[in-house]
Simulated scan of single mutants.
Amino acid sequence: MSAFSERLKQLEWPFWIGVAFFVAVIFSAIYLTLAASEWLKDKKQLPIEMLVLEGDLKQVDEKAVLKALEPQMQSSFVGLDVNAAQANVENLDWVYWAAIRKEWPSTIKVNLVEQQAKAKWNDDFLLNHLGEVFKADTQKLDMFLPSLNGPINEASLVLEHYQDFSALLALHKMKAVALTFTDRHSVKLLLDNGIELKLGRENWVARIKRFLEFYPRLATQHQIQYVDLRYDTGFAVGELKEQQDTTITG
């Protein structure tokens, strides 16, 4: 055996010892990391001790929020899945938006923004301030909501028209309580005094103005059931008692 081979053989042992040591360090680090992770996730080690609800809550049921968070609350402070908790809360009635954050060492804060209901939609749903459709229990509502009906994909447009018409009517101390917007974009408007305005498919604002111009005189002469404004220059009046039409041009 040559001197070079002998020298190479002597170097092999330290090399493999170093490799074994390095592998042992890696496995030890992995084990310690996993052990630490499990310890942090253990509810007994870092329990969640306080849950704080923030926001102006009128319709949201606080008990429902607690129940929605119950699966995540079984974890530790570190192990709580914020994204899953937020998704659960945002699925609740009347919740528009939720933000959940951890506050060391044991507090979870839930900030909620409620839906702002502006109208009933197609009998079974509600519209928020953006014209977005949502479903919620209305039993706790203590405010009037107009009833809007229209094509499913045009909710925001229907709400926009209703708000425009309402602003015009309010100038004359009148109020719309319902609006129907058909698939062919024909509009019917029900006022709080029981009068129905048939506005047709165009020139809605101009036709409402025409009604408002003649209404004081009409109210003294007729018991109005509806006013059909689907004419270029006039309108027809349907009366409650006689159930007959009176056509007026102007």
Rank of each mutant, 00 (worst) to 15 (best):
S2T: 15
S5G: 12
E6Y: 11
L11F: 11
W13I: 14
G18H: 08
V19F: 14
A20L: 15
F21S: 14
F21V: 15
V25F: 10
A35V: 06
A36T: 14
K41Q: 11
K43R: 14
I48L: 06
I48N: 01
I48E: 02
M50Y: 11
E54L: 11
E54G: 01
K67M: 12
Q74I: 04
S75H: 10
V78M: 10
G79V: 03
G79T: 06
G79M: 08
L80E: 02
N83Y: 11
W94I: 04
Y96M: 09
A98S: 12
A99E: 09
A117F: 04
W121I: 05
E132M: 05
Q139F: 09
Q139C: 04
D142H: 10
F144C: 09
L145V: 07
L145H: 02
N149E: 07
P151E: 03
I152K: 10
N153C: 05
E154V: 00
S156T: 08
L159G: 04
E160G: 09
L168T: 10
L169P: 06
K173A: 13
V177M: 07
T180W: 02
H185L: 08
L191Q: 06
L197D: 03
L199R: 01
R201S: 11
E202R: 12
V205A: 12
A206H: 06
I208E: 00
F211R: 02
L212R: 05
E213G: 09
T220I: 13
Q223N: 14
I224L: 09
L229T: 04
R230C: 02
R230H: 05
R230N: 08
G234R: 05
G234D: 09
V237S: 00
E239A: 10
E239K: 13
Q243G: 12
Q243E: 14
G250L: 15
